[in-house]
Design a protein around this nucleic acid. Sequence first.
RNA 1: GGAAAGGUGGCUGAGUGGUUUAAAGCAACGGUCUUGAAAACCGUCGUAGGUUUACGCCUACCGUGAGUUCGAAUCUCACCCUUUCCGCCA
Length: 426
Amino acid sequence: MLSVDFVRNNLETVKESLKSRNSTLSLESFENLDKERRSAITERDNLKAKCNRLSEEIGALMKAKQKEIATPKQQKVATAKIRIKELEQLIEETEAKLSNILLTIPNLPHESVPLGANEHANKEIHSWGNPRQFDFEIKDHIDLGTNLGILDQARAAKITGARFSILRGLGARLERALINFMLDIHTKEHGYQEVLPPFIVNSATLQGTGQLPKFADDLFKLEKSDYWLIPTAEVPLTNIYRDEILEGDIFPINLTAYTPCFRSEAGSYGKDVRGLIRQHQFDKVELVKISHPDKSYEDLETLTKDAEVILQRLELPYRLILLSTGDMGFSASKTYDLEVWLPSQNTYREISSCSNCHDFQARRAQIRFRRSSGGKPEPVHTINGSGLAVGRTWLAILENYQEADGSITIPKALRPYLDGLEKIQL
RNA sequence: GGAAAGGUGGCUGAGUGGUUUAAAGCAACGGUCUUGAAAACCGUCGUAGGUUUACGCCUACCGUGAGUUCGAAUCUCACCCUUUCCGCCA
């Protein structure tokens, strides 16, 4: 969320930003609402001050047993209170409208972000590894997994529905190995604290990270409660410090968590319907940094490298993309995507998205710190990234490491997590 | 799910309708003193909004939301959370 002050004083900048992000939101009403709200507050506060003084006088008169002098003053208060009630209603209405506008304005892009309408304006920063040349007819991960008996989509559709899957035997084991592998590297080598957060959160939490109020359709909500399934561990991790003022020299705070993620994928019908690319439930190891504002763009670089290390250790070819203004998520000021090579699609596909949200989430979630002791609290910066999407890593391994006989070679780095297993085969 | 107790500033903790402008202590910060430090003493010491060129002034906030009253931390109602006990349960 941008601050009211900022929008008021930088209306043109914000309008430009909205345009660059393909937002149709209009700020026409903002100025008037803002003025209306402030004049109503001033009038109300003055009336309240008057009432407070009168009440004090009435109290003194009552004590002195001079009730007859107090009565007209009581009436004055009563009159003022009618107007106060009107004003409060007006304030409530204008504030609701204003906050609705503020909550739906996307974050301002950082100056290093390329301007562009869509993904075609994205910029490749570098690539790593070379896609393997196959001398046989390759299969995609669905055929590979199904044939090996480690992936069962038909039965998952039966027990739940479309976009769910069952991993069995070494398939399930591989998923678990990947989770442990990623968490071990991030905790032991990159200095993140491992966290196991709730997989269900309330709506204040989702508003803090920006999923609500705008993107309720992308989420699963539990009936008869204010509870929602998390779409990513970014949500509980970033909100750990919601409504807190952090003290001391503690930045950056590095957190990592494995969680399942639940997304309704509304509006993506017909996209990636086959396979594990787009599921309603998937596993992810998430990285979050709570950063000092002066260091957050450096921290984004570090976090992105931390995610890249996983792909490098697994020897999966990938490229690093800097997203353009038109392709970035709502809360981000700058985003790198990591895209892994998928032989069956003959292209790179997103496997991690690393964003600096600047003070956007911190302001919504009221996560603050003091630059100096006694100083005024100001918002921290928050950074998050996948390290990595486990399901997509799983399928990338199947496709990149497949052999002519349909077996899968296990990447060397992962073998210690599978009791030294070298191959998944029939 | 049932019963009971509780929720007050960074922390501890007083406060049952009217100088409470939320006491006091701790912690923190500034100063005096000191060669330096500690102690002692003095001062500062919450958040948000509004207003002002500025010093400042005003308003709100004692778990959340409504209500009673001229006036609410204090009284009423609903809800949330914490702790303990009971029930159920992995």
